[in-house]
Nucleic acid binder design. Structure first.
Length: 115
DNA sequence: TAAATGACTAACA
DNA sequence: GTGTTAGCCATTT
């Protein structure tokens, strides 16, 4: 079933290596709530969507409902040059993705959010 | 058809 | 800094 999630995945695939996005940021771009962004990552096709580049608004990796911190996510980000402070937080000022430009939306055949 | 479920967030105390 | 609360809404059951 194709839904808003497909739009979310397309957006996340636009996040470049070495940058991160927040759930709220993706949600705003996709035109849905932050919860949807979170749930979309939970069921994302991990082979095509860089799910690890999506973190929460505090710059931290979110803990999943099973209570486990996803260590692989931090490893993948570290591999891309994302730096974590002593409390496991990413400096969003330095590493947050600034969002797609106008031509990107056209390339993806999507409409920008109304905001 | 109705209820439950979240990898969330902003705004408070 | 730490809670708590309300809002969120597509998807799943």
């Amino acid at each position: 079933m194709l839904g808003v999630y497909q739009r979310i995945y397309t957006l996340v695939m636009g996040v470049p290596r070495g940058k991160v996005a927040t759930y709220g940021q993706i949600a705003k771009l996709a035109g849905c709530s932050a919860r949807q962004a979170g749930y979309a990552m939970a069921v994302a096709p991990t082979d095509t969507v860089p799910w690890h580049r999506v973190i929460n608004s505090r710059g931290q990796i979110s803990i999943r409902s099973d209570g486990l911190i996803d260590a692989e996510q931090q490893r993948l980000l570290d591999n891309e040059g994302i730096q974590f402070d002593s409390k496991g937080r990413v400096d969003l000022i330095r590493f947050q993705w600034q969002g797609p430009d106008q031509s990107w939306w056209a390339d993806q055949m999507l409409d920008p959010p109304l905001i």
